[in-house]
Simulated scan of single mutants.
Amino acid sequence: MIRSSRIILLFLVLCSLNCQGSPPTSNAIESMTKEATEEGLVSITSDARPPLTNVSISPVLQPKESIPPQFTYILRNRQGKVCARVSLGVEYVVRENKKKYYFNINPSLTRATGYCGVSESLLSLDFDGGNLQFVFKKEGSFSYVNTIKGHLKPAPPCKNCKNKTYIGVMDHEKLFKATNGLSFKCNTETTLILADFFRVKLVPLQIQAFDLNNGAFGKEVECWADYNRRMIPIILGAVAAAVCLIAILTYLLVRERRGQGYEQL
């Protein structure tokens, strides 16, 4: 009887070991990692900041405009290489009941997500109650933002106002175009009309996807607005200097002719 019990106990132990199976081998782990990498999905990081909480905070619209806080958002692939970098401040502008309301994205409550691709990448700035998405395209020797989508679901701006979700998109565009390896920069306010009642302001802006050297911005491509702001004072100064020079030369010429006339008399 005792011998039979021992045999049964040994049989149960062997069954238990077979059912548990062996842990995955290193080859299996590498295979799973490779499959995940080929999908292009990434997890994201920006500069150090407090972790997001699980408390849902609805965006609160403000009646007055203010300067949005600037922050640098970074998107990395699974190998840790930076594939997109954006430095900006974001302000949403909505129109409701013929009034304008404003909401600034808070970097400490925002996370960057998306994916990295060879010719297309997506960077999404996500926060409770909305997001802002940039779709980057690489075409030949240039890269640009092809699509910008905005989504905002704020708390009602007034007691009698209803809950409303604002959604807008700019698609099939070639925004912030730059040669590969260079970044696009604009210190002047950039306003994008996502819908008739929904706009987004980016102040200031520096953006680049693909071909980032050591994760840093490449040489800057200046936007036309900044170029005009820088060149117009120079042009006006040159025109003013030319007018003064012409006036001086005219005065000297007239004076010289008058002197010659007096000598003849």
Rank of each mutant, 00 (worst) to 15 (best):
F197C: 09
V221H: 05
N214P: 02
R229I: 08
V203C: 09
T188A: 15
V221N: 06
C186S: 10
R230K: 15
T190G: 03
D211H: 13
E222G: 04
K185H: 09
V203P: 06
K185C: 05
I232E: 14
F176S: 00
I234N: 09
N213C: 14
D226M: 00
F210S: 00
G215V: 06
A195G: 05
F197V: 13
E222A: 13
A238C: 11
F197G: 06
A178F: 02
K201G: 02
F217S: 03
K177G: 07
I235L: 12
A240T: 12
L194E: 00
D196C: 04
L236W: 11
K201T: 00
N228P: 00
F197D: 15
F184N: 05
M231V: 12
L194H: 01
N180V: 11
A225V: 07
K185F: 03
V200S: 00
C186E: 10
G218V: 03
A216I: 10
A225F: 08
L236T: 09
T179H: 13
E189G: 13
S183K: 03
I232T: 15
A209S: 11
C223G: 06
V221M: 08
K185S: 07
L202Q: 02
A225Q: 15
M231N: 11
F197R: 10
L194K: 01
T179Q: 15
C223H: 07
I193G: 07
F197A: 09
L205N: 02
N214E: 15
E222K: 14
P204Y: 05
